[in-house]
Simulated scan of single mutants.
Amino acid sequence: MNAPMEMSETEVLRLKLEVLRQEHRDLDGAIHALEQSGRADQLTLKRLKKQKLLLKDRIARIEDILTPDIIA
Rank of each mutant, 00 (worst) to 15 (best):
L34C: 04
H32Q: 14
T10I: 08
T67I: 13
D64V: 12
S8H: 05
E11A: 11
K46F: 00
K49M: 07
E9P: 14
R47M: 07
I65E: 12
R14L: 01
E9T: 11
K52Q: 15
K50I: 00
M1F: 09
I71D: 06
L20S: 10
I70A: 07
L45R: 11
K49T: 00
Q42S: 11
E35P: 05
G29F: 05
A30F: 09
E23D: 11
L43I: 14
R14P: 02
D26Q: 07
R47N: 10
L55G: 05
I71F: 09
P68A: 14
L48P: 09
E63C: 10
K49A: 02
M5V: 15
L53K: 10
I71S: 01
D41M: 09
H32G: 03
K50R: 13
N2F: 09
L43P: 00
Q36T: 05
M7D: 03
D28W: 00
L66A: 08
E23P: 01
E18V: 01
R47T: 03
L34K: 06
L48Q: 11
L34W: 03
L48W: 09
K52Y: 02
E11W: 03
S37H: 12
L17S: 11
E9K: 15
L27G: 03
E11S: 12
Q51P: 02
D57P: 01
K46H: 08
S37L: 09
L53M: 08
L27T: 00
H32I: 06
V19G: 14
L53P: 07
D64C: 12
Q51F: 04
L55T: 11
L20G: 04
A60P: 00
I59W: 06
K16P: 04
V12R: 15
M5D: 02
Q51L: 06
H32L: 13
A30Q: 10
